[in-house]
């Protein structure tokens, strides 16, 4: 039983890096490429008696749902087959949320740029920022202001990055023993309970909905 347990967490650990790195990358880049590849068709659709909102949202839902299905099939099923527990469910949940966040961000990038190459470049930059640069800055902040009580500040800073937020939800499951030692207790108290789940979910929802909303606003006025 224990043997199986450690195996599951090992599987989840290896999937975690995929989750935090590859999922945002694929979601973002696929969305941008898709947006520009179907540009002419979008144009034809817009020449039909349809609202721009309808065309945009249909496109968003199509891309988001196919990426979500891809995630569930590629990552979700194998994990769940290994064992349904709170870690694997959290993995599934954060993976789906991250997919949606990066689809939204990529849509925003796509409507704001004029050509495909630039859009992919900016999407990669966004991905790079959230998965690497942001954390590097955070570590620098932690070092530079180590004498000050940072917990609350870090909590806010971490919530501002969807990748970090997803990561913390995961390490609360996987490294709870280590986390309890330090500020972790604060994070456990904050994210570990029902209202914490609600909080992180709503932050992620903001990360999903706000970019889509702005993108829609831009798209409605965009010259195709």
């Amino acid at each position: 039983m224990y043997q199986l347990d450690t195996d599951t967490s090992k599987v989840i650990l290896s999937l975690l890096s995929i989750l935090l790195l590859i999922v945002p990358l694929i979601s973002g880049v696929f969305t941008t490429i898709h947006f520009y590849n179907s540009y002419e068709f979008t144009e034809l659709m817009l020449a039909q008696p349809l609202r721009r909102e309808t065309v945009f949202l249909a496109q968003y839902i199509a891309v988001a749902s196919s990426l979500c299905v891809a995630f569930v099939v590629g990552v979700g099923f194998p994990t769940l087959i290994y064992g349904v527990n709170s870690s694997s469910l959290t993995l599934l949940y954060t993976g789906l949320m991250l997919t949606l966040v990066f689809v939204s961000l990529a849509f925003l990038v796509a409507v704001l740029t004029r050509d495909k190459a630039k859009a992919i470049g900016v999407t990669l930059l966004v991905w790079f920022f959230f998965s690497l640069i942001y954390d590097a800055i955070l570590l620098w902040v932690v070092y530079a202001f180590g004498e000050y009580p940072l917990d609350k500040t870090l909590l806010v800073l971490v919530s501002l990055n969807p990748v970090d937020l997803a990561r913390i939800l995961m390490i609360l499951k996987l490294d709870i023993s280590a986390l309890m030692g330090y500020t972790g207790a604060l994070y456990k108290d904050f994210f570990g309970n029902y209202s914490g789940m609600l909080f992180s979910t709503s932050i992620l929802l903001v990360w999903i909905l706000v970019p889509v909303w702005i993108a829609l606003r831009v798209f409605k006025k965009k010259d195709i």
Partner: peptide
Amino acid sequence: SWLYREKIGYMPQTGRYP
């Protein structure tokens, strides 16, 4: 307005489809 496009048939220069 968007319903007026009912009245228009449009053939684009390059038709690309999914």
